[in-house]
Design a protein around this nucleic acid. Structure first.
Length: 282
DNA sequence: ACGCTTCTCGATATTTGAAC
DNA sequence: GTTCAAATATCGAGAAGCGT
């Protein structure tokens, strides 16, 4: 099926397009193509993925905002289950989904800034927005997550005068490939009604690993400075964020400008319990 | 100190669809 | 039908924290 006859043209292209020593060295073309064949869509539903525990409120809804790895999830949004373009086998793209993450600035080569990413209803398909903290008011909008982030990477690499690949995995950068976020989205109402989405299986990771992940340098708990910067970025972009309403277990959840402003002031690290926080402080 | 585990980022493979 | 470009999936390296 996948990767049989169809691969030749793609492989040729990759070789010519790749700048690289890596591709060149890995590949022993003269004899036999390296044929690192990757199966697509394999075992999506059967694989068990580890997730961080995320606190829920008394109704069982996830408490927002929450820090997951390098990302701060501000809103999970609302699932548009009756349109296929709002999900595929692997991901669901909820309207109103909002996260923040740190990445290199598109203006200052020596600086990392906070990017706010969110999804809006584009009618037939979702629209992916990415806005940099230092470029408030001019978000990058694309019909795919990869498209939006590729633009950012290209600009960031250009300003840093880096010539290597501008490739990016949109779902990665938006956090959709993160097991914890994938689970949170999958737990949203109507996720099970998405026709082509394959339900994934998750298991909560062990406590010591959670702490390890949280305290990791690049990800983990945001510093006070990062929080306040995130808050400012959020306030700056909040006027453009979508207003989304969803019903969770009978309780109405609103995602609006005010909500964003409010939540920005109380960002917490969901994966840390109180005792963990004490430990983390000391 | 070491091994374990998971993370992000960057690179590359693969698929899909548009253009010719 | 072929070529090309864009989008997306997946892999590997390196980094980091934790427990022992």
């Amino acid at each position: 099926m996948y990767g049989s006859a169809a691969t030749h043209s793609g492989a040729d292209r990759s070789v010519s397009a790749s700048s690289g020593s890596i591709a060149g060295s890995e590949v022993g073309y003269s004899q036999q193509p390296p044929v690192k064949r990757r199966k697509r869509h394999h075992d999506i539903g059967s694989k068990i993925r580890s997730v961080q525990p995320v606190p829920r409120d008394k109704y069982g809804n996830y408490e927002m905002p929450v820090q997951v790895g390098i990302l701060t999830v501000l809103n999970l949004g609302k699932i548009i289950w009756d349109q296929d373009s709002y999900h595929n086998e692997r991901y669901i793209w909820p309207v109103g989904y909002t996260v923040q993450r740190e990445y290199y600035s598109m203006k200052d080569p020596d600086r990392q800034v906070i990017y706010t990413c969110w999804i809006t209803d584009g009618g037939d398909a979702p629209l992916f927005h990415v806005e940099a903290e230092d470029m408030a008011g001019s978000p990058i909008v694309a019909p795919t997550a990869t498209g939006a982030w590729t633009t950012v990477l290209r600009a960031a690499n250009q300003i840093r005068q880096r010539e290597h690949s501008n490739s990016a995995s949109g779902p990665d950068y938006f956090g959709f490939s993160h097991p914890t976020i994938a689970k949170m989205i999958q737990d949203l109402p109507s996720a099970d009604r998405c026709r082509t989405y394959i339900v994934q299986h998750f298991v909560e990771m062990k406590d010591r690993h959670v702490r390890g992940v949280i305290k990791k340098g690049r990800g983990g708990r945001p510093s006070t400075e990062m929080l306040s910067r995130g808050q400012r970025a959020l306030m700056a972009s909040s006027s453009k964020l979508p207003h989304v309403e969803a019903t969770l277990d009978g309780e109405k959840m609103a995602c609006s400008q005010t909500t964003h402003a409010f939540t920005a002031q109380r960002i917490s690290v969901a994966t840390l319990t109180n005792s963990d926080e004490e430990t983390a402080r000391s």
